[in-house]
Simulated assay, not measured.
Amino acid sequence: MSNDRPPSHTVLIAVATFNEIDNLPLLVAEILDAVPDADILVVDDDSPDGTGKWCQEFAANEPRLSCMHRARGAGLGTAVIAAMKYAIDRDYDLMVNLDADFSHTPQKIVDLLAVAKTSDVDVVVGSRYVAGGGVQGWPLHRRFMSRGINFYTRLLLGLPVRDCSGSFRCYRVATLARLDFDAIVSKGYSFFEEILWRFRMAGATFCEVPYVFVERERGYSKINWREAVRALYLIARLGLGSIFTSQSKSA
């Protein structure tokens, strides 16, 4: 890992990558322009296309950028957990997570941070499903599937936000430090639903800020139907497990 130092700023922008060489250089440049006082951490899972190598080389001359290199196939959820632990260990105040494919516009980071810095909210969710939010570039079946998964998640996990499955969020690091990361069961995309549930169980507060999701133009999506089915199973496991636990305690 490069630039392993105490933070000079209070905000960490975390990006998990696998084969994003077509996007990462442009994304880093836009993030640095949009939030020049923030640091960036790229967590790369041994991308064979050179994403990690580019990051390491660029970070050598850019003190705001750090790279974490991991073994391939460890899972998106564990990459975000690694970034969260990094933020905790280095005493950042806020951590913003976004995807590497420009589906989350770097300029919108400012909106999430504005809410986090002027309130006591623990999680600021970039939301596609509140007024002002939306999706561009998705076919009808994918829109339907996303709406269905979010309804399913809110129902089973009792989450107070409309967009439970998106990864574009700002977390208060002091609240992250109260979570038991060893208890997290999700390794893939269902992590983003589970971490909100973990926050809710810890008594955290939430706020949603609208943004428009834009389908990637370069590279390819890593999610597949197996991952989607696994996510549905894990959400049900968490939700039904908590219901049975609360019933046994009240019995």
Rank of each mutant, 00 (worst) to 15 (best):
S2Q: 14
K187R: 14
A236Y: 05
D99C: 11
D122G: 08
R154L: 05
T245L: 10
L26Y: 08
V115R: 08
N19M: 11
R90Y: 09
D22S: 11
G75P: 08
D122H: 11
A87T: 06
A100H: 02
V125M: 05
R143D: 12
E193C: 15
A74R: 11
D49H: 01
G241M: 04
E20G: 01
A38E: 00
D4F: 13
A231L: 10
I235L: 02
C55A: 14
D4R: 13
A116H: 03
A34E: 08
F168D: 02
G137H: 08
R172T: 06
M95L: 13
G203Y: 06
R200P: 00
G73F: 00
F192V: 05
A174I: 06
V35W: 02
V135G: 03
A87C: 09
N61H: 14
L176P: 01
Y220K: 15
V125W: 02
I13S: 00
I21Y: 03
G134Y: 06
D122P: 04
L238P: 01
R70M: 11
G219Y: 08
I184R: 00
A114N: 13
A228H: 12
R154S: 04
T153Y: 04
V43L: 03
K108A: 07
F58G: 00
P139E: 13
L234C: 03
A204C: 06
A114K: 14
S165R: 14
G203H: 12
G188P: 02
D101F: 09
E193F: 15
D44E: 05
R200I: 00
